[in-house]
């Protein structure tokens, strides 16, 4: 359990704070990816504040749970959660994407303690997660490995190579999460390269699949509890159905908000909608 373990109700409140940080960081940076950061906020909040067994003071502890954000463009949600969890000062969030900053535009391993993999070239995180999970299995270590991907991201063939491998090696300590917000850069996922039926695909690849509304903290908690307690001998895939841009009405389900930062005025409207500040 995280040192900062929060209850489900507390995570709902924390998730608002995370969303506020996302909007503020992106507006300050003037570039970045709000849609896919906001869609993943519930899951990332639940991970950092309830499920991940990590100690920000010992980011390289051998028995830590690993979290790999394979959809690296959504890193603002991870930075926001890491800052709130104590990996670094919240004030550093304003350095996102600036020269000399540790908060790179996509995650970089080695730059910021707690980042497990350099991602942003899509499709790679699950393979790296498989390596961590395999090492954990070889060493009979108790840690879990979580890997969050985007639905557009799993167009990449490497993801399916990794999916085959994880099932073949029975990596039951591995939990993949597909943040299925239904939209990728050029448009709707189902218009660009159809992925459905997504649950059936992962099941056919030998995974234990859980499908949830990933913007419902209760369902997120339930799914992660089941995933962590997994004894099926299979890896677990959570298909997390989410809304791109969730929490900001004018961004929700908008293809145009994949990779455009809000202006100061838009950020103000977004923050008013998100609320959650005393």
């Amino acid at each position: 359990m995280s040192m900062n373990a929060l209850s489900q109700a507390e995570c709902v409140a924390k998730c608002r704070v995370i969303r506020r940080h996302i909007i503020e960081m992106l507006a300050e940076a003037g570039s970045g990816h709000p849609g896919g950061s906001l869609s993943a906020a519930e899951v990332v909040t639940a991970l950092y504040f309830h499920f991940l067994r990590q100690d920000p003071a010992q980011p390289e502890a051998a028995d830590r749970d690993r979290f790999i954000l394979s959809k690296g463009h959504a890193v603002p949600v991870q930075y926001a959660a890491m800052a709130e969890a104590g990996y670094f000062e919240v004030s550093e969030l304003s350095t996102l994407r600036r020269i000399d900053a540790r908060l790179q535009g996509h995650p970089v391993k080695g730059t910021l303690p707690g980042i497990e993999a350099s991602t942003g070239a899509l499709g790679q995180g699950l393979s790296i997660a498989c390596g961590h999970a395999l090492a954990g299995k070889m060493d009979a270590a108790g840690y879990k490995v979580f890997c969050m991907m985007g639905d557009g991201e799993i167009d990449e063939g490497q993801v399916w190579e990794a999916a085959l491998f994880a099932a073949h090696q029975k990596l039951s300590n591995l939990i993949a999460i597909v943040d299925a917000n239904g939209i990728q850069l050029d448009g709707r996922v189902e218009d660009i390269l159809g992925l459905e039926p997504l649950v059936d695909k992962w099941a056919a690849f030998g995974w234990s699949v859980i499908e949830i509304d990933g913007n419902d903290m209760g369902q997120v908690f339930d799914a992660l509890e089941r995933a962590v307690a997994n004894t099926s001998g299979q890896p677990v895939c959570i298909i997390s159905r989410t809304v791109k841009g969730k929490g900001v009405s004018f961004m929700e389900n908008g293809v145009e908000w994949h990779g455009v930062a809000p202006t100061a005025e838009e950020a103000e409207r977004a923050l008013a909608e998100i609320g959650g500040v005393a």
Binding site: A117, H132, F165
Partner: peptide, 25 residues
Amino acid sequence: ERFFDMGICEANMCGVAAGLAASGK
């Protein structure tokens, strides 16, 4: 027990290797 045939999946092999190395191998 320390050898893994990855199948014909070079990309995945490189990524898995990175994860194994990051966890101490």
